[in-house]
Design a protein around this nucleic acid. Sequence first.
DNA 1: CGAGGTCTTGAAGACGATCAACAAACGTGG
DNA 2: CCACGTTTGTTGATCGTCTTCAAGACCTCG
Lengths: 242, 242
Amino acid sequence: MPEDSNPLIRALSRRDQLSAEERGILSEIVSRERTFAAGEEIVREGSTPTESCLILEGFAARSNLLGDGKRQLSALHVAGDFIDLHSLLLRTMDHSVVALTQCRIGLVPHRSLMQVTLASPHLTRLLWMITVIDAAAHRAWVVGLGRRSPLQRLAHLLCEVFLRLQAVGLTQDRAFHFPITQQQIADMMGVSLVHVNRTLQELRGTGFISWREQTVTISNWERLQELAEFDPTYLSLEKQPR
Amino acid sequence: MPEDSNPLIRALSRRDQLSAEERGILSEIVSRERTFAAGEEIVREGSTPTESCLILEGFAARSNLLGDGKRQLSALHVAGDFIDLHSLLLRTMDHSVVALTQCRIGLVPHRSLMQVTLASPHLTRLLWMITVIDAAAHRAWVVGLGRRSPLQRLAHLLCEVFLRLQAVGLTQDRAFHFPITQQQIADMMGVSLVHVNRTLQELRGTGFISWREQTVTISNWERLQELAEFDPTYLSLEKQPR
DNA sequence: CGAGGTCTTGAAGACGATCAACAAACGTGG
DNA sequence: CCACGTTTGTTGATCGTCTTCAAGACCTCG
C-alpha cells in the first residue's frame, strides 16, 4: 500500500513523529485486503482471530447482542482504526464487529504485530496507544449513556466523529459524509429508533447542524460542543513523543 | 514489597506465566506508597501524571463530573488494578480517579514503565493487556447502560466484582467485602439513588444474593449470572501465553 | 448525646418505550 | 425506464419506568 494513502500512518503520525523506518514497517504490515458489505460481520464474537483488522474505508462498529434481541453498539470506528488490535493480547473476541457501511478492511497478521513488539518498543507503544485511546472513547460513551440526555449524547457523538474524521483527513471544512441509519444511531445511543428520530429533529431544530443526503454539516461548532459538553481531551489528538 | 503480597503480580500471573526475572522487576516497580481516605481524589482530571497508581488495597473508581453536578463513574477498580496506566501514553487525564473506600496506593514512576517497554517485550505486552482488559470492562458497561435494565445491570456488576476479587484472592467462598454506598452504585449504574435502593430490594428479593454489613454473599451464582446475562469472557481470566 | 451520612419509603410527574401506521427513498429486475 | 418490494424515515397515542422531591428511620462516630 502506498504510504500516503495508508490511514494507519495518518492516524499515528497525527499523534507522534514517525521515523522513515517505522513508516516502512507500517506500510508493509497489511497482508491482504477484504471488502465487506453493510451489515456484514467483520469479526465474530467468540472467535479467536489470528489477524487484526484495520479499516481502510468505511464505518464499522463493535456490536453486542442481548438475550431479548436488543443490540448495543459499544464503539464506532472509522478509517484508520484498528478494530480488533486487542485480540493480539486477548485471544477470544467478547463482541462482534459489524460493517455499518461498505468497508474496505486491511488484515494484519498477529505474527507481524508480535514481531513489532519484539523489534520496536516505540511502535509497540504507539499500537498500545491506539487501544488506550479506544478505551478513552469507551469511557466517554459510558458517561453519555449514564448521565447525558439523548440530545446531548447525539451532539457528543457528532462532535467525536467530526474530530476523528478530521484527524484522518475525511472532512470537508465543517462537513463529513456519514451514511449511518437512525437504527444504527439508536443502537449506539441506547434509545429506541423512534426516539432517535425525534431527537434528531430537535437537534436539527437548534440550527447547530444539518444532516441531509448522508452528509452532516456542523453550522455552529462552538454551540454544538457547548450543548454536548464536549471536551476533546480524550481523543488525544496532540502530537507528542510517546 | 514482598512478592506474594503484591496484587499486581497476582493479577498478572493469573493470566500468563511470569519468569523469576519478571517477578523481580514487578516487585521493585512501586517506588512509594500513599493512603487515601474514602472520597479523596487519587488522580485529578486535567493533570499530567509522571507516575501511575496501583491499588494495593481498597476500591476506587474513574469519575466524570458533568455540568449540572451529575456524576458518572466510568469504571470500578479493585486491588491489583493499575488505575492510570494509560497516562503513560496519553499525558493528560480526561477523568479523575477517586477512592470509594480507604485506599492504599502504590506509585509507579513512568520512568520505570518506560524502561520496561525498552527492556522487556513480554512484560510490555502484559501491561498493555491490563489496559485492554480495562477497555473490555468499559464495553461491558456501555452495553449495560445502553440496553440492560437496572436490575440486570446491578446483577452484572456483582458478577463482575465477584470474579475480579476472586482473581486476586479477595473472596471467601461465595462472599466478598464490598463497602460501597448506594450513591456510588447509582453513579456507576447511571440511575438515581432512590432507584438503586428499590432495585437492590428487588435483587435481594430474588434470593440470589444477600448484602448485609458491607458483605455481599452470592447464594445462587448460576441464577445470578442468568439474570445478568453475564459472560465472563471479557475478563480474560484464562492463563495463556500473551 | 447530637450531627452527619446513609438507607428507606411515598407520591407526583417527566421522559422515553412501544405499538401502529404511513411516507419517502432506494434498488432491482422485468 | 418503470413497477414493485424493501429499507429507511416520520408521526401519533398510550403506557410503563425512572426521576424528583420530600420526609423520616437508622446508624456511626466524635
